[in-house]
Amino acid sequence: MGVVYLAALLLSLSCMLLLDWRFRLFFWRDAVSAAVVTTVGLVFFLLWDVAGIANGIFFRGEGAIASGLLLAPELPIEEPVFLVFLVVCTMVIYTGSARVISRRRARRRDEAEAS
C-alpha cells in the first residue's frame, strides 16, 4: 500500500498528458518549449521546497499511502512527481483556456461582421 500516492500521481499525470495529446495544448503543440517550461517550473519549485526544508518550514508527513523513499531529508520521491504534475496541469489548463477564449472572441467577431 506504500506506493498508492505515487501511483495516483503518475495516473493523474498520464491523464493530463492524454488531454494534452487529444487537444494539442502543451507538449504536443511545442515539445521543446513545453520541456523548457516544465523543467524551469520543476527546478523552481524544488528550490522552493529545499529552502522551506532548510528553514524548518516543510516537513515530510508520515502516511500509509506514501512510499517512504526519500531523495533528501524531508523530500520524498513523490514530491518531484507532484511538481511535474502541477506544472503540466497548470499549462494544460492555461493553454486550453486561452484556446477557448480565443475561439469565442473569433466567433463573436465573425458574428458581428456578418450582421
Rank of each mutant, 00 (worst) to 15 (best):
L46P: 09
M1E: 08
A112S: 15
V87D: 03
V37F: 15
L19P: 00
P80T: 01
I53D: 09
A72H: 05
V43H: 13
M1P: 07
W28S: 02
A72V: 00
W48F: 14
L11T: 11
C15T: 13
V81P: 02
A98R: 03
S115K: 07
V81A: 08
V100N: 10
V32L: 14
Y94A: 13
E113D: 10
V32F: 09
R24I: 02
A64D: 12
L46I: 13
V37K: 11
R107P: 09
A7D: 11
A8Q: 11
L83C: 05
S33I: 11
V100A: 15
E74R: 03
F59M: 00
A106K: 03
L11G: 09
W48H: 04
S33P: 10
V43G: 15
A54I: 13
V87S: 06
L86R: 02
F23M: 04
R103C: 14
I65Q: 11
F59I: 00
R109K: 03
A35V: 14
S14L: 15
A7N: 12
E79D: 05
V92F: 15
F85K: 02
A64I: 12
D49M: 05
P73E: 09
L13Q: 01
L10S: 12
T39D: 13
E79V: 01
L46M: 14
Y5C: 06
M1N: 12
I101W: 08
S67A: 06
D30W: 05
S67C: 08
E79I: 03
L42S: 12
V36W: 12
L70M: 02
R107M: 14
V40P: 07
C89R: 00
S102N: 06
V92T: 10
R103E: 15
S67F: 11
T39W: 08
E79A: 01
T39M: 14
V81N: 00
G63I: 01
V84S: 06
A112L: 14
P76T: 03
E78W: 06
G2E: 04
C15S: 08
A8K: 08
V92G: 09
A66G: 10
A34Q: 02
I53C: 09
F45A: 04
G96E: 05
E74F: 04
V3I: 12
G56D: 07
R60F: 05
L13P: 02
A64R: 07
T90M: 15
F58V: 07
V43P: 13
V4D: 10
L25Q: 04
